[in-house]
Design a protein around this nucleic acid. Sequence first.
DNA 1: ACGTTTGCGCTTTAGC
DNA 2: GCTAAAGCGCAAACGT
Lengths: 80, 80, 80, 80
Amino acid sequence: MTISNSADEQLKLFISRVESVNSEITLLQDDRKDIFAEAKANGYDPRAMREIIRLRKLDPQVRQERQSLVETYMAAFGME
Amino acid sequence: MTISNSADEQLKLFISRVESVNSEITLLQDDRKDIFAEAKANGYDPRAMREIIRLRKLDPQVRQERQSLVETYMAAFGME
Amino acid sequence: MTISNSADEQLKLFISRVESVNSEITLLQDDRKDIFAEAKANGYDPRAMREIIRLRKLDPQVRQERQSLVETYMAAFGME
Amino acid sequence: MTISNSADEQLKLFISRVESVNSEITLLQDDRKDIFAEAKANGYDPRAMREIIRLRKLDPQVRQERQSLVETYMAAFGME
DNA sequence: ACGTTTGCGCTTTAGC
DNA sequence: GCTAAAGCGCAAACGT
């Protein structure tokens, strides 16, 4: 017979809480996948969409500074 | 002047929906971080907890088969 | 007493070969880190450098097509 | 006409050096893939092999302590 | 069905 | 110590 002591119970509770959160995250990830699939079905490119989302997370000024620098470096390589 | 046509609007809506989901995921990730921090403050080891959570996602039989194989390989290296 | 049979020996050899390759990779990763550090010390931005390296891996036409699409999407959001 | 100044040249040299290292890493990664494929063809399980390699990177005492802790936690969940 | 490729989340590490 | 990035491993998607 297994006797779970209180320490075990506390651990199991913490784990349970994390797993619950993980389940919610998984549902949202599925939602996100569905949205990308729907967008793709409507002719949009998921890859470019992801790039936009990534860029929009940045502060506009930071984004522009970084982009300028990349373009400067690209120029050194003749990349248009 | 920028005139957003309906295609633009549709794209913006898709992006907006994804960003909304991303926000919710971020909140949940923060929750999860908090739970691990609380568990750690109570003397539990987050690394081992993550391992348990990972293992519990597996079908028990699969988990045992994989573990047996790893132990067999460990034995070949004298890893107790 | 441990008697390593020939199967064990074969496994150990495969593992050893992989670990050897891994060691070489680690050395090269260290080299790369040093190069970035040296470039940074000379005023170059490692982040932008990594971006250039990433872009240069792509076929030029593919790169331009992808970039065009991203810019189109950015325009829909008024990102310059 | 494009005139590459010395700063451009220095940047291009740094990038070139990194790309060269990257190429070598890719070759080694291919080698590693081949080894795993060969091992698999000889009946070994790549997943378990990767686990062994991961564990062997750890200090033996650390590895045992971590493993003990995981087993303790597993016991709380009745995972044999 | 096979391996290959791509994307994604997790982990670890590096840089501030 | 904390945020950000890079490497790793898994899983799904793709085409062969």
